[in-house]
């Protein structure tokens, strides 16, 4: 009886999410990736198109990701310090 609320929520979410099965699987979808595939090597000089997108076309994304990584690693570093470590007096 206690699990009735999560199951109702899940069924509701599943109803919305499973509308994605109408996507035809295995067909090319956007023209943007065709642009990346056709011009990526000439634009960036990298043969690996994923790296070309990751570090050239969408480098701002990578900057944000590096910032989140840095902040989270710093958070672990600060949370798990020994008592009295790093305090100057």
């Amino acid at each position: 009886m206690k699990r009735i609320v999560p199951i109702i929520l899940l069924l509701l979410l599943a109803f919305f999410l499973l509308s994605a099965i109408k996507i035809n699987f295995g067909q090319p979808k956007t023209g943007l990736s065709q642009y990346y595939l056709n011009h990526g090597v000439a634009d960036t000089g990298a043969l690996n198109i994923v790296t070309a997108i990751y570090l050239d076309y969408r480098a701002y994304d990578t900057l944000g990701e590096a910032t989140v990584f840095f902040a989270a690693a710093l958070g672990v570093f600060m949370l798990l310090r020994k008592p009295g470590e790093g305090e100057k007096d």
Partner: peptide, 24 residues
């Protein structure tokens, strides 16, 4: 910001991609 400014080598060699190598 963050776009390539370096000279590029021949495609298929390590210095072909300019800044991408250093960012990697």
């Amino acid at each position: 910001f963050l776009s390539d400014f370096m000279p590029r080598g021949e495609i298929g060699t390590v210095p072909s991609a300019g800044l991408i190598f250093f960012l990697n």
